[in-house]
Measured scan of single mutants.
Amino acid sequence: GHYRIRINGREFEIRGISEEEIRHLEEALRNGADEKILKEIVDRLRG
């Protein structure tokens, strides 16, 4: 998958993330885990 997200007015492209991972992120966001989720995304993109 290849997705664009906007955070604090800046747009980011996220590549190589699966539909299942996105559902997991959405679930966590609904549970209020904003900073933790951003850290997970950044860590994943770093490799």
Rank of each mutant, 00 (worst) to 15 (best):
G1W: 03
H2L: 05
H2P: 06
H2I: 15
H2V: 12
Y3D: 01
Y3E: 01
Y3L: 12
R4Q: 05
R4T: 09
R4W: 08
R4E: 02
R4G: 02
I5T: 01
I5R: 00
I5A: 01
I5D: 00
R6D: 02
R6H: 07
R6T: 14
I7R: 00
I7H: 02
I7E: 00
I7T: 01
I7M: 03
N8W: 08
N8Y: 07
N8H: 05
N8T: 01
G9F: 01
G9T: 01
G9M: 01
G9E: 02
R10M: 15
E11Q: 04
F12S: 00
F12A: 00
F12D: 00
F12Q: 01
E13W: 15
E13K: 03
I14Q: 00
I14L: 14
I14H: 00
I14Y: 02
I14K: 00
R15S: 06
R15T: 06
G16W: 08
G16C: 10
G16Y: 09
G16N: 13
I17G: 04
I17H: 02
I17F: 04
S18T: 13
S18Y: 03
E19Q: 12
E19G: 08
E20I: 07
E20L: 08
E21H: 05
E21M: 09
I22K: 06
R23N: 09
R23E: 09
R23S: 09
H24K: 11
H24P: 04
H24D: 12
H24M: 14
H24Q: 14
L25N: 00
L25S: 00
L25M: 04
E26F: 10
E26A: 05
E26S: 05
E27Y: 12
E27G: 06
E27M: 14
A28R: 07
A28D: 03
A28N: 05
L29T: 03
L29Q: 06
R30C: 08
R30V: 08
N31P: 03
G32K: 05
G32C: 10
G32M: 06
G32D: 05
D34K: 05
E35N: 06
E35S: 11
E35M: 11
K36A: 12
I37E: 11
I37R: 08
I37C: 05
I37F: 11
L38N: 01
K39W: 15
K39F: 15
K39D: 05
K39T: 12
E40P: 03
I41A: 03
I41E: 02
V42P: 01
V42R: 03
V42E: 03
D43H: 14
R44K: 10
R44C: 09
L45S: 03
R46S: 14
R46A: 14
R46N: 15
R46F: 15
R46T: 15
R46W: 14
G47C: 14
G47W: 05
G47T: 08
G47I: 11
